[in-house]
Write a protein that binds this DNA or RNA. Structure first.
Lengths: 150, 150
DNA sequence: CGACCTGTGTTGTACATACAACAATGCTAG
DNA sequence: CTAGCATTGTTGTATGTACAACACAGGTCG
């Protein structure tokens, strides 16, 4: 008999829940909550994440390092950074070798959004449950590439 | 002393890892893997998910039901569906009350992609580990709204 | 029968994301 | 000092996502 691979794969596709589908659903639900909470502060959770990554880094980061830290594509980071730059929330990072930095205005924006962020953080933790938060921690570690810097 | 809320929130923002940031990172890494595996078959994992949701549903679904099942916005589903419709992979779902259905071509596309999907599924399971997969299962359940149909 | 309302799908706009291709920078070798 | 070259940032294009606002049924009530 001629088969195997394909038919087994088709059977699995029909019967096994797709891990990516689970991740996408989780993403829509969780990110949606944060974005809703942050909306009136004029930030998305993606933008806040970028700002906080820069603010809490132990040194100034170039674009490529920031992209590596966040495990996102250079081009994605370039556009995210450009949006914040246009609004005066970050400077630099727009030339090879130039580090990016959060401006005082950017820091102010982040701090002004802290309360809304914390409400979303708490509400989400409650939705997920303590074991859910632990599960997410585990997954985040599993997908995080150890940064190779010294 | 005057404070509390705001300063505590700012302190938390600086010290607590953001759950949404973890979810976003997980999303980028996992979905990226599936999309890469599926690319040469002309499908994204989002599209495959949509097709399989329709194919495995126990009855024909209208757009609003499909959006509910996937917990995504009506407008998002409308565009995703429109892309597949333009390629002849689904029909219907374009008028209030009209159910959407996968065409034979759409089904063929999904089945042709099954092996690539399964490779990504297995590789991802290995990356996450058995406990990671269980963790993701738990999270998916926690964010899934029980559909209220009867 | 016709005028509303309600629910459903689409469209305008904006953001997040990635791949491919391009541009700009800086280093290195000659 | 200049010509390559590798690295890094941007841009073109496409998808996925959501909110607001609009368009389009279908049902109800007068």
């Amino acid at each position: 008999m001629y088969n195997t691979g394909r038919e087994a794969a088709v059977a699995a596709l029909w019967s096994e829940p797709c891990l990516a589908a689970m991740v996408r659903r989780l993403h829509r639900v969780v990110v949606g909550r944060y974005d809703e909470a942050l909306r009136r502060h004029g930030l998305t959770v993606a933008q806040l994440d970028l700002l906080m990554t820069l603010l809490t880094a132990d040194r100034a980061l170039r674009s490529v390092e920031l992209a590596g830290a966040l495990q996102m594509d250079r081009s994605t980071l370039s556009r995210n950074l450009a949006r914040l730059r246009r609004r005066g929330l970050v400077t630099g990072g727009d030339r090879p070798g130039a580090a990016a930095a959060v401006t005082p205005a950017g820091r102010q924006m982040a701090e002004d959004a802290a309360e809304a962020w914390l409400r979303a953080q708490r509400a989400t933790a409650e939705m997920l449950g303590a074991d859910g938060v632990a599960a997410l921690d585990l997954l985040a570690r599993r997908v995080t590439t150890p940064d190779e810097e010294g």
